Every structure is written in C-alpha cells, then in structure tokens.
Amino acid sequence: AVTGSQTALLLRAFEKDRFPGIAAREELARETGLPESRIQIWFQNRR
C-alpha cells in the first residue's frame, strides 16, 4: 500500500506534470521506494 508521505510526494509531482516521462517516474520511484511500474499505474489511475 502507498503510505501518506508517498501519496503526498506523488500528489505534488502530479500537480506539476500529469504525464511524467520515464525519467521523472524513475526519480519518483527512487524517492518513494515504490517500483516505477507502480508509479505509472498511480498516475494513470489519478488522471
């Protein structure tokens, strides 16, 4: 499950760019500790 702090970080990124590229998703994966594929799905679901 995604924690509150991970969600906050993802929401901030989403406000800046609703369609992040692979580099941005990989950076978010490093920052959150989540797999990049999970980040991609999160953005798809959020849109």
Rank of each mutant, 00 (worst) to 15 (best):
Ala1Gly: 12
Ala1Tyr: 13
Val2Phe: 15
Val2Met: 15
Thr3Gln: 06
Thr3Met: 07
Thr3Asp: 08
Thr3Ile: 05
Thr3Glu: 05
Thr3Lys: 06
Thr3Ala: 05
Gly4Trp: 10
Gly4Tyr: 10
Ser5Cys: 15
Ser5Leu: 14
Ser5Asp: 14
Ser5Asn: 12
Gln6Gly: 03
Gln6His: 07
Thr7Arg: 14
Thr7Val: 13
Thr7Ser: 11
Ala8Glu: 13
Ala8Leu: 13
Ala8Trp: 08
Ala8Gly: 06
Ala8Cys: 14
Ala8Ser: 09
Ala8Pro: 01
Leu9Ile: 15
Leu9Ala: 11
Leu9Asp: 03
Leu9Val: 14
Leu9Met: 12
Leu9Gly: 02
Leu10Gln: 00
Leu11Phe: 05
Leu11Gln: 11
Leu11Cys: 13
Leu11Met: 13
Leu11Lys: 07
Arg12Asp: 06
Arg12Ile: 11
Arg12Trp: 06
Arg12Gln: 10
Ala13Gln: 04
Ala13Val: 07
Ala13Trp: 11
Ala13Tyr: 14
Phe14Asp: 01
Phe14Val: 01
Phe14Met: 03
Phe14Asn: 00
Phe14Gly: 00
Phe14Thr: 02
Phe14Gln: 02
Phe14Tyr: 12
Glu15Tyr: 11
Glu15Met: 12
Glu15Val: 08
Glu15Asn: 09
Lys16Gln: 10
Lys16Cys: 07
Lys16Ile: 11
Asp17Ala: 05
Asp17Trp: 06
Asp17His: 07
Asp17Thr: 08
Asp17Cys: 15
Arg18Asp: 05
Arg18Ile: 05
Arg18Cys: 10
Phe19Lys: 04
Phe19Asp: 07
Phe19Ala: 05
Phe19Arg: 04
Pro20Ala: 03
Pro20Trp: 03
Pro20Glu: 00
Pro20Asn: 01
Pro20Gly: 02
Pro20Gln: 00
Pro20His: 01
Pro20Cys: 03
Pro20Lys: 02
Gly21Val: 03
Gly21Asn: 13
Gly21Tyr: 02
Gly21Asp: 13
Gly21Cys: 06
Ile22Trp: 10
Ile22Gln: 13
Ile22Lys: 15
Ala23Cys: 13
Ala23Lys: 13
Ala23Tyr: 08
Ala23Trp: 08
Ala23Met: 10
Ala23Val: 10
Ala24Arg: 11
Ala24His: 04
Arg25Asn: 02
Arg25Ile: 15
Arg25Pro: 00
Arg25Leu: 15
Arg25Tyr: 12
Glu26Trp: 08
Glu26Val: 10
Glu26Asp: 06
Glu26Lys: 13
Glu26Arg: 14
Glu26Phe: 08
Glu26Pro: 01
Glu26Cys: 14
Glu26His: 11
Glu27His: 09
Glu27Cys: 08
Glu27Ile: 12
Glu27Asp: 10
Leu28Asp: 00
Leu28Ile: 08
Leu28Phe: 03
Leu28Lys: 02
Leu28Asn: 01
Ala29Asn: 02
Ala29Met: 07
Ala29Cys: 05
Arg30Pro: 00
Arg30Ala: 07
Arg30His: 06
Arg30Thr: 05
Glu31Lys: 12
Glu31Met: 14
Glu31Ala: 14
Glu31Ser: 11
Thr32Phe: 03
Thr32Gln: 01
Thr32Met: 04
Thr32Asn: 00
Gly33Trp: 02
Gly33Ala: 04
Gly33Cys: 03
Gly33Asn: 05
Leu34Asp: 00
Leu34Gly: 00
Leu34Met: 06
Pro35Ser: 15
Pro35Arg: 04
Pro35His: 09
Pro35Val: 05
Glu36Ser: 07
Glu36Lys: 04
Glu36Met: 13
Glu36Asn: 05
Glu36Ala: 11
Glu36Pro: 09
Ser37Ile: 12
Ser37Cys: 13
Arg38Tyr: 15
Arg38Val: 15
Arg38Gln: 14
Arg38Ser: 13
Arg38Asn: 07
Ile39Asn: 02
Ile39Asp: 03
Gln40Lys: 13
Gln40Trp: 10
Gln40Asp: 14
Gln40Asn: 13
Gln40Ala: 14
Gln40Arg: 14
Ile41Pro: 00
Ile41Trp: 12
Trp42Ala: 00
Trp42Arg: 00
Trp42Tyr: 01
Trp42Phe: 03
Phe43Cys: 02
Phe43Ile: 02
Gln44Met: 09
Gln44Ala: 11
Asn45Ala: 11
Asn45Met: 12
Asn45His: 11
Asn45Asp: 12
Asn45Tyr: 08
Asn45Val: 09
Arg46Val: 06
Arg46Lys: 12
Arg46Thr: 08
Arg46Gln: 14
Arg46Ala: 13
Arg46Ile: 07
Arg46Asp: 00
Arg46Tyr: 11
Arg47Phe: 04
Arg47Pro: 02
Arg47Glu: 04
Arg47Met: 07
Arg47Asp: 04
Arg47Gln: 06
